[in-house]
Simulated assay, not measured.
Amino acid sequence: MRILFSSLGSHGHTYPLLPLAIAAREQGHDVTFATSADFAATIERLGLRHFAAGLDMRSAFTEAHGSHDPDVPEDELPGLIAKTFGSVMPRRNHADLTPFLAEWRPDLVVHEVGNPGAGLAARVAGVPGLCHGFGRMWDTDDMPPIGPHVLEFAGELGVEVPEEDPMLLGNRYLDVCPPSVQDKRFLAANDTIPLRPVPFAEPGGLPAWVAEHEQPLVYLTLGTAFGDPGVLRAAIDGLATLEGTRLLVAAGPTVELDALGEVPEHVVALPWVPQADLLPHTDLVVHHGGSGTTLGTFGAGVPQLVLPQGADQFSNADAVVAHGLGDRLLGDQVTAEAVADRARHLLADTVVRDAAKAIAAEVAAMPSPAEVAARLPEYAR
């Protein structure tokens, strides 16, 4: 069977689909993965065919803004985000994928929830589609109005899309969020297929001491898109005061290590770490609340302290707190003292640790990518 996977060109949108795409290839399906050109090397290294489609995030925002000026007035930002994700990127993905679908003629298209353009191209071409999630669904009232743009574009194409959750396009939804944490309204309103969230990371080595560390290991990251040297520095200053712990910091691609300054001897700061390999060794994860890190920490079964910076991160932080899986600090609350205090409490709190182990057990019980890949032919009918 021919299967096209398609995502927006960012780590947080592409990586969650890779475990299922790999599983589908391993089961003998002919798999192509369509995303922006800067992910070609990663896709092809996994033995998957890459097709360049869509724009990278920076180019998409520039097109939506009509300017290379990075400074956008705060009151205009929600509208710009809505136009970027609801119009610019869907239209570009639809345009890029339409001729490819006509030529390659896949049996199934798996599009991630942030990429309705691929799903719309499939619908117009008469190809069955599945929508693949990348995390917990969030309250649309707290997000920029992306849906109306998607509905407008779908109308232009003559495609009927439900006004409730339009990003799904009415397709069945591969849900990588544990049901106990998922938004209950969303679960009630949509046809979901549970899929275990399996962290993916580029191959790479960890510091030798990580696997056999005797002291509690705290991991700090703000992810690949929302790095802030000021927030990282405050968190490092606080976490470095925790006696008897080791701290591993991943600065990410948006923060230079030099911007963090000197760090104590028991703190290791790196540009990047293979997070999927690291998480099972951690005792506490302090992070931005990105969906990949949040779900990965669920699977690792350890407490988390969330320092949300944007997008769905605030909703993820709310869910972590609401389900007793950790704590959060918002905005000006992120001081060295506050980070140290919350982290110290989470490292000692057996109730939170037990809750984290329970969510890890729930994740482990969800159907694996291999199990879901075995059912893909029935979804193509």
Score class of each variant (00 low, 15 high):
Gln304His: 12
Gly133Phe: 02
Ala319Pro: 00
Arg123Cys: 01
Val339Asn: 02
His288Leu: 07
Asp107Phe: 00
Ala102Cys: 01
Pro162Gly: 03
Ile43Pro: 03
Glu26Asp: 15
Glu152Phe: 05
Val110Glu: 06
Gly79Leu: 12
Asp312Ala: 00
Gly86Cys: 10
Val124Trp: 07
Glu63Arg: 15
Pro207Leu: 10
Val249Ser: 01
Ala250Asn: 08
Asn93Ala: 15
Pro70Lys: 07
Gly170Tyr: 06
Leu17Ser: 08
Ala365Pro: 01
Gly331Asn: 11
Leu376Lys: 10
Glu74Asp: 15
Pro229Lys: 05
Ile43Asn: 06
Leu151Glu: 13
Asp349Gly: 04
Ile22Ala: 03
Asp258Ser: 14
Trp104Leu: 11
Arg185Cys: 01
Glu74Lys: 02
Val110Gly: 07
Ala259Pro: 04
Val339Lys: 03
Leu168Tyr: 11
Val218Ala: 08
Pro253His: 04
Leu101Pro: 03
Lys83Trp: 04
Ala40Pro: 05
Glu378Leu: 14
His288Val: 09
Leu295Gln: 07
Phe39Trp: 15
Asp318Leu: 09
Arg328Ala: 15
Asn171Gly: 01
Ile22His: 00
Phe85His: 14
Ala374Leu: 14
Val285Thr: 14
Gly290His: 06
Ala24Tyr: 05
Leu195His: 14
Ala370Phe: 14
Asp237Glu: 15
Phe33Arg: 12
Thr254Trp: 03
Arg172Asn: 13
Pro90Arg: 13
Ser6Tyr: 10
Gly205Asn: 12
Thr84Pro: 07
Met167Glu: 13
Leu169Phe: 13
Thr293Ser: 10
Thr14Pro: 00
